[in-house]
Amino acid sequence: MPSSAAPDPFGERLSAATLRICDAVTAVSASNPVVVIDGRSGAGKSSLAARVARAWPLSTPVQLLALDSVYPGWSGLERGAEIAREQVLRPHGRGLIGIWRRWDWELQEEAEAHAVDPALGLIVEGCGALTRAAAALADVTVWVDGPKDSRRRRALERDGDGFRNHWDMWADQEDAHIARHEPQTLAHVRVATP
């Protein structure tokens, strides 16, 4: 009997990418692999990272750091990526506990601290996450992108008016990151969402 569910090209693309990333994680043959997922706003990075975390192919749990929790405000794309690299990825690669502080978007200040266990796998997800320096600290790198109109629609459905007034400023920061670091060329896995 045929399924009555409507096709979901976005979900299907993320499911296929999740399998590819999990296969790449398994191929690393490490107990604490690092996955870095970068891409444009609304492309599906957060959804993909959550799927990979749920499908994590190792017996040990995985930690997930979304850069949305670290960016120091709407002008903080580059600084958030730097915080993740220096305070989480570098220590993790050296077998040391990493510490990051959550950014409180309402109070516009740092909040509580969180530790990252170097013995466990790690997913770092967010715009700006993938640079040459970050790629050197990662086992699997991912770039996610899609058409601007689709991305904008998804981002505004997710974040509403809180993001609407900042879309152009954020997109300019993404453009600068892409021009400077060419993250798409650093990705082992590239995902094009509809």
Rank of each mutant, 00 (worst) to 15 (best):
M1Q: 14
P2I: 08
S3Q: 12
S4D: 14
S4I: 13
A5D: 10
P7R: 09
D8Y: 03
P9L: 04
F10M: 04
L14M: 14
L14C: 08
A16W: 08
T18E: 09
R20K: 13
I21S: 00
I21E: 01
C22Y: 03
S31L: 09
P33M: 08
P33W: 07
V34W: 00
V36F: 00
I37Q: 00
I37C: 02
I37H: 00
R40N: 12
S41G: 14
S41H: 10
G44A: 06
K45A: 07
K45P: 01
L48K: 01
L48C: 03
R51V: 04
R51W: 06
W56P: 01
P57G: 05
L58V: 10
S59Y: 06
P61H: 07
P61V: 07
Q63C: 04
A66R: 07
L67R: 01
G73H: 07
S75C: 09
G76C: 10
L77Q: 11
E78G: 11
R79K: 13
I83P: 00
E86V: 06
R94G: 09
L96F: 14
I97P: 06
G98A: 05
R101D: 10
Q108K: 15
E109N: 12
E110Q: 12
A111G: 12
A111H: 09
E112Q: 13
A113D: 06
V116P: 00
P118A: 14
L120A: 10
L122S: 01
V124R: 00
E125W: 00
C127I: 04
G128Q: 03
L130R: 02
A134E: 03
A135Y: 01
A136F: 14
T141V: 03
G146R: 02
R151L: 10
A155K: 07
D159Q: 13
G160H: 09
R164H: 13
N165G: 13
N165M: 11
H166G: 08
H166F: 13
D168V: 13
M169V: 14
W170H: 12
A171T: 14
D172E: 15
E174Y: 12
D175G: 08
A179Y: 07
R180P: 04
R180I: 12
T185Y: 11
L186H: 04
V191N: 01
P194C: 05
